[in-house]
Amino acid sequence: MNLAHVLDGLRCASCGTLNALWLDLTRALVECRECGQTALILTDTDEGRSP
């Protein structure tokens, strides 16, 4: 089972390729399929409810 999703309309900050970013929720990262650059994602567990 693959939980990766294409992030349409976004461009990689490293190589500039459009529509090459994938969101992998299992590993909590975004990866560019063109250049291999990865970035960890952080989730807001309280969904902005803290003051």
Rank of each mutant, 00 (worst) to 15 (best):
residue 50 S to D: 12
residue 29 L to P: 00
residue 49 R to M: 10
residue 4 A to V: 03
residue 48 G to L: 07
residue 13 A to E: 14
residue 24 D to P: 00
residue 35 C to A: 15
residue 41 I to H: 00
residue 22 W to V: 04
residue 31 E to A: 06
residue 37 Q to V: 15
residue 21 L to A: 00
residue 12 C to P: 00
residue 26 T to M: 07
residue 14 S to F: 10
residue 33 R to C: 05
residue 4 A to F: 01
residue 5 H to Q: 03
residue 21 L to P: 00
residue 49 R to K: 10
residue 34 E to V: 13
residue 34 E to Q: 14
residue 18 L to P: 12
residue 9 G to D: 09
residue 51 P to G: 15
residue 40 L to C: 09
residue 24 D to H: 10
residue 23 L to T: 01
residue 6 V to E: 06
residue 10 L to T: 13
residue 31 E to N: 10
residue 33 R to Q: 12
residue 20 A to N: 03
residue 20 A to F: 00
residue 4 A to N: 03
residue 30 V to G: 01
residue 44 D to G: 04
residue 7 L to N: 02
residue 42 L to D: 13
residue 25 L to T: 02
residue 47 E to W: 02
residue 29 L to M: 14
residue 43 T to R: 03
residue 47 E to K: 05
residue 37 Q to Y: 14
residue 14 S to G: 12
residue 15 C to K: 10
residue 6 V to N: 10
residue 10 L to R: 13
residue 21 L to D: 00
residue 44 D to H: 03
residue 19 N to A: 08
residue 19 N to S: 12
residue 41 I to L: 07
residue 13 A to D: 14
residue 34 E to G: 13
residue 16 G to L: 10
residue 38 T to Q: 14
residue 32 C to G: 04
residue 18 L to I: 08
residue 28 A to I: 05
residue 36 G to V: 11
residue 37 Q to H: 15
residue 20 A to H: 02
residue 13 A to F: 12
residue 8 D to L: 08
residue 29 L to W: 10
residue 50 S to T: 11
residue 40 L to Q: 12
residue 14 S to L: 11
residue 20 A to S: 09
residue 28 A to P: 03
residue 43 T to S: 05
residue 41 I to Y: 03
residue 48 G to T: 08
residue 20 A to E: 06
residue 42 L to G: 07
residue 48 G to K: 05
residue 45 T to D: 02
residue 36 G to L: 13
residue 38 T to K: 15
residue 6 V to F: 06
residue 35 C to M: 15
residue 3 L to E: 05
residue 5 H to P: 00
residue 26 T to Y: 06
residue 42 L to H: 06
residue 35 C to P: 11
residue 34 E to W: 10
residue 44 D to Q: 05
residue 47 E to V: 03
residue 13 A to S: 14
residue 6 V to D: 08
residue 16 G to H: 07
residue 35 C to E: 15
residue 35 C to H: 15
residue 33 R to G: 08
residue 31 E to Q: 08
residue 18 L to S: 10
residue 44 D to S: 02
residue 24 D to A: 04
residue 38 T to V: 13
residue 7 L to I: 06
residue 42 L to I: 04
residue 11 R to Q: 12
residue 47 E to G: 03
residue 18 L to E: 12
residue 6 V to I: 04
residue 46 D to V: 05
residue 24 D to I: 01
residue 28 A to R: 10
residue 9 G to P: 03
residue 29 L to I: 04
residue 23 L to Y: 05
residue 22 W to D: 06
residue 40 L to D: 14
residue 48 G to R: 10
residue 11 R to D: 11
residue 17 T to I: 08
residue 43 T to A: 02
residue 30 V to E: 02
residue 48 G to N: 09
residue 30 V to S: 00
residue 12 C to L: 08
residue 6 V to S: 07
residue 43 T to F: 03
residue 51 P to K: 15
residue 10 L to E: 13
residue 17 T to Y: 04
residue 30 V to Y: 01
residue 32 C to L: 09
residue 9 G to K: 05
residue 41 I to K: 01
residue 42 L to K: 08
residue 36 G to I: 12
residue 45 T to G: 03
residue 22 W to E: 07
residue 48 G to H: 05
residue 27 R to S: 11
residue 4 A to I: 04
residue 17 T to M: 09
residue 33 R to Y: 09
residue 31 E to P: 01
residue 21 L to N: 00
residue 33 R to F: 08
residue 36 G to W: 12
residue 11 R to G: 02
